[in-house]
Write a protein that binds this DNA or RNA. Sequence first.
RNA 1: CGGGGCAUAGCUCAGUUGGCUAGAGUGCGCGGUUUGGGACCGUGAGGUCGCAGGUUCGAGUCCUGCUGCCCCGACCA
Length: 409
Amino acid sequence: MKQSFFAVKTDKNAPHDEGSINAQLLTRGGFVKKESAGVFSFLPIGLRVLQKIKRIIREEMNAVDMQEILMPALIPKENWQQTGRDNVDIGFKTDRNYILGWSHEEIVTPLSKLYINSYKDLPVALYQIQTKFRNEPRAKSGLLRGREFSMKDGYSFHLDREDFQKYYDRVAEAYFKTFERAGLKSYKIEAGGGEFSKLMSHEFAVITPAGEDVMLYCSACGFARNAELRENEKEEPKKCEKCGSELKKDKCVEVGNIFDLATKYSDAFNLKISDKDGKQVVPYMGCYGIGVSRLMGTIVEAFHDENGIIWPKTVAPFQVHIISLNQDEEAKKLEKELEKEGFEVLFDDRDESAGKKFADSDLIGIPLRIVISGRTIEKNSVEWKERAKNEAENTPLSEVVNKIKSFYA
RNA sequence: CGGGGCAUAGCUCAGUUGGCUAGAGUGCGCGGUUUGGGACCGUGAGGUCGCAGGUUCGAGUCCUGCUGCCCCGACCA
């Protein structure tokens, strides 16, 4: 794609009223545009990133046999009344009998009555990637806490608690994989609190100074827990309670969570199935969330330097950024060749100074930059510069395509 | 929802004790010179000074109310 066709421009100034790194860099790079507190438009390259993240999530959810569906954002008030959640503060009320969906137990549970009738239909799990609305008293930190945001929410149904537990652990593994593929090291934290305080729930957290939470974690075995959880203890233990190694303490962002719902919602909506003996039993439920747009913000918080974003290869808006310094013909040839090989290429064909092109390239953060200039053409080569590295190197023109293939292998 | 800060060109900002036709940088348009780290010359367009009221001969500037945004806290199903 030619950069000159972009509807989006970079800006060397950060918005004066944005404090967080993700909001500043994503805005300056033309990924997002804030419309009001916690509400964003996603511009062409920002949407590309979001969709890469969604794709990873879909692949991992499909891999644990969740089926994708799409539920509405407008949820009838009577559904909320049935669970007593119609007056929860974070729900946006409308002037009709709807409340904007901030979670979807109230839709997925009655919906599932249509096709879950027997133990033979279980287990089953459904998920969606959809826009959630939460009337946060204080939206903040760019994409990290919004009022309107993209979320993956999944719900599973089981004959009994044992079957649920097996699936819960399977999803937890899928979550680790999902975040790892998005470039992030995540920790599973035992979480109490909230509505489900008596039931099991876990948060998935990523370490970054921009985080709102604090966790204690063991770098040896990966065990982690919320640092505030046991405030009453005068001194926090220094050793991991699982393996005895040193515990560390850091700020973190919650990017996912998984909950044991037990039969709370099945009961509320009178969801019942026949077991093997023909007896009516109440299915056991679990619920599984990932903050999709929050994950995008978290990635920026985790991967940037003073010049801009450094996207992980798996979620970058493009794979190769070609910069031409008065060598558009050669650059176009390379662009075509790479696109034929299936690579996503951004070609900076703009009539801008070299400095501006380099600065924009660093800001946008595509993992690999290829410069073609008079200097490189002389040597029948290109300049190879990885965004994550400081040094550039010369690469013969004839080897570039293969080298890119192995870079992305 | 409590505390603090901010609001002037698309963006970042300046604007003195209230005073004439509200400025700069950047971005944008046009013409030209440039191309290895935000290069330059010329020229042009771009404003309801957040909104509403008040004080005053006169308000971007002072007063009151409101709205929006950011930060800290509370909250976070």
